Lab assay of single mutants.
Amino acid sequence: SGEEFIAMYTYESSEQGDLTFQQGDVILVTKKDGDWWTGTVGDKAGVFPSNYVRLKD
């Protein structure tokens, strides 16, 4: 389980282990570690910068 966040911006990365997503995607955040959080979008999982998302209303 985790908290749902909304992507405010598209995040694209070629780094292994990074979670890429489109603006407006719902991200289920499973771990918060400083500026880099872990989460899932659909069947993808990985880390992403926390300043790209906001808490879902």
Rank of each mutant, 00 (worst) to 15 (best):
E4M: 07
E3K: 08
F5L: 04
V29F: 00
S14D: 13
T10M: 07
L55P: 15
G24D: 12
T30H: 15
Q23V: 12
V47F: 05
I27S: 04
W36H: 06
P49T: 03
D33A: 11
L19F: 06
V53C: 07
T40R: 15
D35G: 07
D57T: 15
I6F: 08
W37F: 12
S13M: 01
T30W: 12
G34P: 07
D57Y: 10
V26Q: 10
S13H: 02
G17M: 07
G34L: 05
K32Q: 15
F48K: 03
F21E: 01
I27Y: 00
S14T: 12
S13T: 08
E12M: 09
S1E: 11
V26S: 12
V29M: 00
Y11D: 02
E15M: 10
Y52A: 06
Y52I: 12
D18F: 13
G39Q: 00
V41L: 11
E12Y: 08
N51Y: 06
Y52G: 00
S1G: 13
I27H: 03
E4D: 13
N51A: 12
S14Q: 15
G42C: 06
G24N: 06
D35C: 06
D33L: 08
V47D: 11
K32N: 09
V41Q: 11
Q22D: 11
A7K: 01
G39P: 00
T10P: 12
K32L: 03
K44C: 04
K44E: 04
G46C: 04
S14K: 12
N51Q: 06
F5S: 08
S14Y: 10
G39N: 00
D35E: 13
W36Q: 13
G34I: 15
G34N: 12
Q23S: 09
G17Y: 05
G2H: 15
A7L: 00
E4V: 06
D35I: 11
V53E: 03
D18K: 14
V26R: 12
Q22R: 13
E4L: 10
Q16M: 15
E4W: 08
V47T: 06
G39D: 01
W37V: 03
S1C: 09
E15C: 09
E15K: 15
K56W: 08
K44A: 05
V41S: 14
K31Q: 14
L28W: 14
L28E: 14
W36G: 01
F21A: 02
Q16A: 12
D57C: 12
T20R: 09
V29N: 05
D43W: 04
T38Y: 15
P49C: 02
E3W: 05
Q22H: 12
A7G: 04
S1Y: 09
L55F: 06
G42T: 02
Y11Q: 04
Y52P: 01
V26F: 05
L19C: 04
G42R: 10
N51M: 10
G46M: 00
Y11C: 06
Q22K: 11
A7S: 03
A7M: 00
F21G: 03
Y52M: 09
E4S: 08
D35V: 09
N51T: 13
L55Y: 02
S14F: 06
T38I: 02
I27F: 00
F48L: 03
G34Y: 03
L55A: 13
S13E: 05
G42Q: 13
D25C: 02
K31C: 15
V26M: 12
D43L: 10
G42M: 05
A45L: 11
F21D: 02
D33V: 13
G34S: 05
S1T: 14
Q23T: 14
G39S: 00
T30L: 07
K32Y: 04
T20K: 11
G46I: 02
K56R: 08
E15Q: 15
F21L: 03
W37Q: 03
D33Q: 09
V41Y: 08
L55S: 15
L19N: 03
G2N: 15
E3M: 10
S14G: 12
I6V: 13
M8C: 08
F48A: 00
K32T: 11
K44L: 06
P49V: 00
S13N: 01
T10C: 04
S50I: 05
T20L: 05
K56D: 10
D43V: 11
K56P: 12
P49S: 03
Y11V: 01
G2W: 07
W37E: 04
V53F: 00
K44T: 03
N51H: 06
L55W: 09
K56I: 05
Q22A: 11
G2K: 15
V26T: 15
K31D: 14
S50W: 00
S13Q: 05
D25P: 00
D57V: 03
Y52N: 01
T20N: 14
G2P: 07
D43T: 14
